[in-house]
Simulated assay, not measured.
Amino acid sequence: MLDRFPEIYEVEAVMPGFKVPTEEGIEEVISTIAPFLSVSGGSIELIELDDGEGVNPRPTIVLGIGGPPAKNASLKAEVVRRVKFIYGQAEVQLHELVMEED
């Protein structure tokens, strides 16, 4: 391609699901899930993000999920699916949040 199009000086392959996770990007994904969880009495939040630049070469995303949805395996699987759709190379962990009673 570089030989045929001299205006192009660089070609970079971008694989779906291989974006580098950022706090803002993860919060954007969470914002698509949070309204549904809140209706069912739950919540979701980013607890920890390791971008994979340190000792662990694989990014790790730790999310906290609370309320009744935390007990629902299919909802938890959907949360992981949505995050992995964008950040496919990342390890996604879900931890149950203890909800404080009013």
Rank of each mutant, 00 (worst) to 15 (best):
M15C: 02
M1K: 09
E24D: 11
P21R: 09
E24C: 04
F18A: 05
I8W: 03
G17A: 00
R82F: 00
E101Y: 08
P69T: 04
V29W: 00
M99K: 14
L75E: 12
T60F: 02
G67M: 07
P21W: 09
E91F: 08
M99T: 13
I65H: 00
E91W: 06
P69H: 07
I33W: 01
M99I: 14
P16K: 02
K71R: 12
M99A: 14
F36M: 13
E10N: 10
Q93H: 12
E10G: 05
K84N: 03
G41Y: 08
A73I: 08
V92S: 12
V79K: 00
A73C: 01
E28Q: 12
L49V: 05
V98K: 12
I26Y: 04
L2K: 08
D102I: 15
F36I: 15
L63T: 03
P59W: 00
Q89S: 12
A34V: 06
V92E: 03
I26C: 06
D102T: 09
S74R: 13
V55S: 14
H95F: 07
K84W: 04
K84Y: 04
E24R: 11
G41Q: 06
M15Q: 10
R58M: 08
R82Y: 00
D3P: 08
P59R: 01
I47A: 08
R81G: 00
P59I: 00
V11H: 04
S43C: 13
P35Q: 05
S40G: 12
E78C: 08
E100I: 14
V14M: 13
E100V: 08
K84T: 07
R81S: 01
V62K: 12
A73Q: 13
F5I: 05
V55A: 15
E96H: 08
V98Y: 12
E12M: 07
